[in-house]
Design a protein around this nucleic acid. Structure first.
Lengths: 330, 330
DNA sequence: CCGTTTCACTGATACGGTTCAGTGAACCGC
DNA sequence: GCGGTTCACTGAACCGTATCAGTGAAACGG
């Protein structure tokens, strides 16, 4: 039998004020110092705390920020989610983390669900940035996009994927690799997402022989995709569009008795904390996760507080060389 | 200018019914087939969808399950969160994932926040299972505890830590190790949490020379703790109370130029997907994460649907031997 | 001393649903 | 043909807060 919570009316009665006055007092608005003190005391006495649901219904705000992840199976997105959640907490906001599981339809449903929950803002790492519903959504709630650009958002933290791809492919080329497999993640509904476009363009420029394949989400999925890739005509290097996928390549190589990097070189894209721990360490493109977290939180906070200027932050990657790419001498 | 959403009253007007009838119809209650169809059509026409906030205020239910993690820096808890989130989705519920960041006070605040959000149930992996507020909380919302037992919950998925510790320490002893460091995670307010008690008891029984240290949350924290531990009198083996912590030991060993397992053996506790990918593979105690996810989701669903029987599921671990523990011959 | 501001607070209404206690009509058995 | 159910629906109250348009008193200016 849950003891009923105190309501604002009871506090009003206890202090001899109107509910409205109590509402104002507790938020430090339009009341004298003295009554504020009296209300505070009575509230503490009764163990009163404003009901967030009722407050959300009446005011339309919640103090919450929605975080919609394309696929939480990706370790890097997990790390991002944890960072953002933590960082928002310091601003007295809560993050609601939701996972679209790589399904565009679910992404859409969750985005709308989040808006209906009256989140003050939405941070999105979309698997379908070109979808039409975004523009409509952006009108009813401030959205910050991470990764790919979305039309109509209040802010963006975009990755210079062109530069990232160039960094990776040039490194592979400089190490003597010509036949390279690219392993990207499945889920995007648009067949030619920006990153993929850059791959073909850069490969052309550098005269590389590229084959692109997609991997399902999750370590198991990546491993399966890598297994198939490595058993057919084996490329001299695999460029993975996420460190998580590269982990799958390690696993597949291990299964097949192939050594990294002697039998196959592997290149990642993210720089997840675990990547340095593998043997050999994963050579990857470092996107500075902390910087992204800071930028995203700054943008969404500004937008949620009514800031109106549309901001765009461009993230530039660095090459992090470890041991998973061998130098071909032939 | 966000176009206003349709309300239930507009649907009522469009169909010539009362709002109450519409409310019933959309939930398939107490109405004729024919009106139900008519209401559905009108709702679709107007793009009407019930506002979850208003619904929550009126009915006290949300369809959401709160998931409160002691520390999301722990990769295993991340994996658990993803699994639970996914599994709940299949039952038409949403999971709200929150992270207490290893802080008992914040754990308490978030738990209450979640209750105030009207979650239908709460899954908790507590860092302070003995805290007093739990019993009060359990009266106002069904709680399922994962890991350590909490008094008053509607269900529990507890780990047979006694067995897990025995498994680990016996394996180390059988491999010839006597001087063992135990690395546990910080954050528990109770100095003698159950798992620690088992360690001392089992160590006594097996005649092991044990030293217990705690590691801060996160890979960096674990690495720092391990670095200190390995530079002082180096034990022959380190038993970590989470695979995440073991990763820190790998990192520290690597920094210090020590080889695993030749210079120091490492034993984990969890079996995280990444543990098989390290070199050498991490020998660990496998807790069957999928089984835990299934059990927790089953328990919370039952409890949220009004099931009243208190259920307790005991999880039994397995030893997963890989290559991080060497056999001492001396 | 009077008209205007300012201040601290009140009353009523809005938010968008759910739910409870009817209500009239149709249906039932006898 | 009549009392009793059942059925499909309605009207009103309610959930707990925020907010807007007052209101009376005090402060102020001239």
């Amino acid at each position: 039998m849950p003891r009923k919570r105190a309501t604002i009316r009871e506090v009003a009665q206890a202090t001899g004020l109107s509910p409205a006055a109590v509402s104002y007092a507790l938020r430090g608005l339009q009341v004298s110092e003295e009554t504020m003190e009296r209300v505070r005391a009575a509230a503490a006495e009764l163990g009163y705390e404003a009901d967030p649901i009722a407050r959300a219904l009446a005011s339309g705000r919640t103090g919450m920020i929605g975080l919609l992840c394309g696929s939480l199976e990706d370790l890097w997105q997990q790390a991002l989610a944890v960072g953002i959640s933590r960082s928002l907490r310091e601003k007295d906001r809560y993050a609601l983390i939701l996972d679209a599981v790589g399904d565009p339809a679910r992404e859409r449903a969750l985005a709308q669900q989040l808006r209906d929950q009256r989140v003050d803002g939405l941070i999105v790492q979309s698997i379908d940035p070109a979808a039409a519903f975004w523009s409509e959504l952006c009108e009813s709630v401030p959205v910050v996009a991470i990764g790919d650009s979305i039309a109509g958002t209040a802010g963006e933290v975009v990755f210079d994927n062109r530069r990232g791809v160039t960094l990776a492919l040039e490194h592979l080329r400089a190490s003597g690799h010509r036949r390279i497999s690219v392993l990207t993640s499945t889920g995007a509904s648009t067949p030619d997402r920006p990153a993929d476009v850059h791959v073909t363009a850069e490969a052309d420029r550098l005269g590389l022989d590229i084959e692109v394949a997609t991997a399902p989400h999750g370590l198991a999925g990546a491993t399966a995709a890598a297994r198939e890739l490595l058993t057919r005509e084996r490329p001299s290097a695999v460029f993975c569009f996420a460190d998580s996928i590269a982990y799958g390549v390690y696993a597949a190589a291990q299964e097949l008795g192939l050594a990294v990097p002697d039998d196959v070189s592997v290149m990642g894209y993210d720089d997840h904390p675990m990547s340095g721990l593998l043997t050999p360490g994963l050579t990857t493109v470092d996107w500075d996760i902390d910087g992204i977290v800071r930028a995203a939180v700054r943008l969404i906070s500004a937008a949620a507080d009514g800031g109106t200027r549309r901001r765009r932050v461009m993230q530039t990657p660095t090459l992090r060389e470890r041991g998973s790419v061998t130098r071909l001498t032939s």
